[in-house]
């Protein structure tokens, strides 16, 4: 089948304003949108620029807006979106070139929640044991690949990139509900700040956008209730 892929284009060295460019190419239903972009770049327009690496939804580098929805180009097939495809950069972050955005504010927010394991007891001889039930408590939020699909679909983040955003909450959740970690209190204080969970209006955009199907709104809800009750259960 023939598909038309219309792509947001902006070259900071040449263009005053962004524009859209449409490319036609042959594709099959099972082609990934990433495959189409690669083919366009390989044969029609080498200047088209985007990030990608793993090509199967694991590395989180190719988040983009595909027909208006935040998705990974490598995890979106032609059969999911049809023969007319529009691809744009994710919103709320500065466009550097074409589909490449400046991820710095996103990662700065991530770093604010101290996304690392903290336990100041001396390390045991072997590993720190954890029961399967305790591990399950935060299993969902370990799956995050930091693709930014969620945060850049969030109206509160569009309002201010200082807003921690769902991805940072997901990472906070991953450690706060890990019973081996000792810094839950500190992290809860961080997510409770002005730019924290109080700005989340439970719009669900984030959960809809997550390519790892993480129950983000649920995780945020658990943070909110931990803040209210002071309990982690």
């Amino acid at each position: 089948m023939e598909v038309t892929i219309k792509v947001f284009r902006y070259n900071p060295e040449k263009d005053k304003k962004p524009s859209y460019k449409a490319y036609k190419l042959e594709a099959v239903e099972t082609d990934r949108v990433l495959d189409l972009l690669e083919k366009v770049k390989g044969y029609q327009d080498g200047t088209l620029s985007f990030r990608r690496s793993c090509a199967h939804g694991i590395c989180g580098s190719d988040a983009m807006r595909i027909n208006g929805m935040n998705r990974l180009a490598c995890k979106t097939l032609v059969r999911d979106v049809g023969a007319k495809i529009t691809v744009e950069p994710i919103l709320g972050l500065r466009v550097i070139k074409d589909l490449i955005v400046d991820m710095k504010p996103f990662f700065d927010n991530y770093k604010k929640v101290m996304p690392w394991f903290i336990n100041n007891d001396p390390a045991p001889e072997k590993e720190r044991y954890q029961s399967p039930e305790a591990r399950l408590r935060y299993d969902d939020t370990t799956k995050c690949i930091l693709c930014a699909c969620c945060t850049t679909s969030c109206p509160s983040f569009w309002g201010s990139d200082e807003y921690l955003g769902p991805a940072a909450f997901v990472s906070a959740h991953r450690f706060i509900f890990d019973d081996r970690d000792q810094a839950a209190g500190e992290r809860l204080e961080i997510v409770n700040e002005v730019m924290g969970v109080s700005r989340c209006h439970t719009v669900f955009n984030c959960t809809m956008a997550c390519p790892r199907e993480i129950q983000i709104t649920k995780a945020i809800g658990e943070l909110k209730s931990a803040l209210m009750t002071g309990k982690l259960d």
Binding site: N11, P12, E13, K14, K41, D45, G46, T47, S49, F50, I96, K97, D98, I100
Partner: peptide
């Protein structure tokens, strides 16, 4: 030769 002659994120050159 890359068709992209720019400096910023010249992914074609890198490829």
């Amino acid at each position: 030769r890359p068709t992209d002659t720019g400096e910023v994120f010249n992914m074609e050159l890198m490829n």
